[in-house]
């Protein structure tokens, strides 16, 4: 069957099997391989994307369920060659080791900071509860999100500001 959605602000139309997971369609048909598969059952968050502006596990969404929706993946948040401030903050704070979990964490942080410009640590941790990291021990990820929040708060009107849906 044919499904159509907007991925990272571009229209996409793909012929899929009705049982195809959105994760696989993004990676294999649209070659957006930044979105990762860890567990494949909703536990690790490596496959996190935004569906109509909300973070979801793309391993638990069938492609037909996303028909007509707006999708944002990790490839859609940088501004051309310039990393998004959240991505910069992960680099600067050393919030990345093997990097497998990073796209998912960045997308969860992106969704958080779009809704809440000055989150408390508890709010950051709650927003990241669906993402697992086996390497960093989380402290540097928390620091990265704090840093990104501070930076985004300083430039309210820049093109890097998480836009409203």
């Amino acid at each position: 069957m044919k499904v159509r959605f907007r991925v990272n602000r571009r229209e996409a139309a793909v012929e899929v099997d009705p049982g195809a997971r959105l994760l696989d369609v993004l990676r294999n048909d649209l070659h957006l391989t930044g979105t990762k598969e860890g567990c494949g059952e909703g536990e690790c968050g490596a496959c996190t994307i935004l569906l109509n502006g909300r973070p979801v596990n793309s391993c638990l969404v069938l492609a037909p369920q996303a028909d007509g929706c707006e999708i944002t993946t990790i490839e859609g948040i940088a501004d051309g060659p310039h990393l998004h401030p959240i991505q910069e903050a992960f680099v600067e704070e050393g919030g990345v080791q093997c990097g497998f979990c990073t796209p998912g964490f960045v997308m969860s942080a992106y969704a958080l900071l779009r809704a809440n410009r000055s989150p408390t640590d508890d709010e950051i941790l709650a927003a990241l509860e669906g993402n697992l990291c086996r390497c960093t021990g989380y402290a540097k990820i928390l620091a990265a999100v704090r840093r990104a929040a501070a930076r985004l708060a300083l430039k309210p009107d820049s093109e890097h500001t998480p836009e409203a849906e």
Partner: peptide
């Protein structure tokens, strides 16, 4: 229940 990602679905 679950996580933000789970509760969004």
């Amino acid at each position: 229940l679950g996580s933000v990602q789970i509760r969004n679905r």
